[in-house]
Design a protein around this nucleic acid. Structure first.
Lengths: 129, 129
DNA sequence: TCCTTGTTCAACCGTTTGGTTGATCAAGAG
DNA sequence: CTCTTGATCAACCAAACGGTTGAACAAGGA
C-alpha cells in the first residue's frame, strides 16, 4: 500500500487517539504500555496505532532491552505545513484580488489599465493527481 | 458522525483526489462537473468527495440556477496549522533542551545561572483525550 | 409543455480500518 | 533453566470508505 506520503500523514493524524499519542510524545518518549495506559483500549490496538504513525514517518521505535521506546519525528510536520501554507496562501491571495476587483467596480473612470483577469499567477501546476 | 472538527479536516485531506480538488479550488471556484472532469471517476463520486470536504468545513456550496458552485473556505486551515505548530514547537523545544543538557554534560563549570529547565511554557493543556 | 443539463439520492459492492481475543516471541530476573 | 514482562502476530468482526450504477429532482431553454 504505497500511498503517497502526504496522504499517510494526514490519515495518521485523522484519528483522535493517534493525535493524542503524538501530543504526548511531543513532551517525552514513551513505551507502548505507557502510551496505552490512559486509553480504554487494548495494548495491541495502541501498537497498531503506532504502526500507522510509524508508516507515516511521524514516529520511530528503538530497542532498549525488551522495551521499545517510541520517539516523535517532528520533521514530517513540515510536509503538511508546506502543503497547507501553499494553498491557504493561494486562496488568500485570490480573495485579496477579488476584493481589489470589487473595490474598483463602483466607478470605472475610463479605460482601466488592468486586464479582465489579473495575471494568472505562474505557480507550478499539478497538485497530487 | 459528529467526529471532532480536527479529525474531519485531517481525514478529508487524507485523500489525494480531495487534496487536488482543494488545490484547484484555491485558484478558482468551480462546479461539480467541472471538478469531476479531470478525474477518471463518476460525477457522483466527486459529489461524495465534496460532501466530505463540506462536512469538514473546507468547502461551501451556493446556488446559481441549476449549478452549484463550490467555494473553498480557507479559514479551517488555521485549525490544522494551530495544532501542528503547537506540537511541532513543543517537540523542537524538547530537542533544544536535550541539546542543552548534552552540551553542559562534559564540564559542569560550577553553579550555572540558568535554571535546570527553561520556563515550562504556559500552553493550554489537554489535547484531544 | 417537453427536453436537456447539473446535481443529488439510493442501493449495492469490495477493501480498509479500528477494535477485539488468543497465541507467540524476545529479553531479563529468579 | 524457568518465570515474568513487554511487545507483536494472527484471525476475526462490525463499521466506514471509495467507488459503481440507476433513478430522481430542480431549473432553464426550445
Amino acid at each position: 500500500m504505497p500511498a503517497d506520503a502526504l496522504s499517510q500523514v494526514f490519515s495518521a493524524l485523522a484519528d483522535p487517539t493517534r493525535r493524542d499519542i503524538v501530543a504526548r510524545l511531543a513532551v517525552a518518549d514513551a513505551t507502548v504500555t505507557e502510551l496505552a495506559e490512559p486509553y480504554s483500549v487494548s495494548v495491541q490496538a495502541v501498537s497498531k496505532h503506532l504502526r500507522v504513525l510509524e508508516g507515516a514517518g511521524l514516529v520511530s521505535r528503538s530497542r532498549d532491552a525488551q522495551r521499545r521506546p517510541v520517539h516523535l519525528e517532528a520533521e514530517v510536520f513540515d510536509l503538511m505545513t508546506a502543503w497547507i501554507e501553499r494553498y491557504r496562501r493561494r486562496a488568500e491571495e485570490r480573495y485579496r484580488r477579488l476584493d481589489a476587483v470589487l473595490a474598483e467596480m463602483p466607478d470605472p473612470p475610463g479605460p482601466v489599465a488592468s486586464p479582465r483577469h489579473p495575471p494568472p499567477d505562474p505557480v507550478t501546476p499539478g497538485g497530487q493527481p
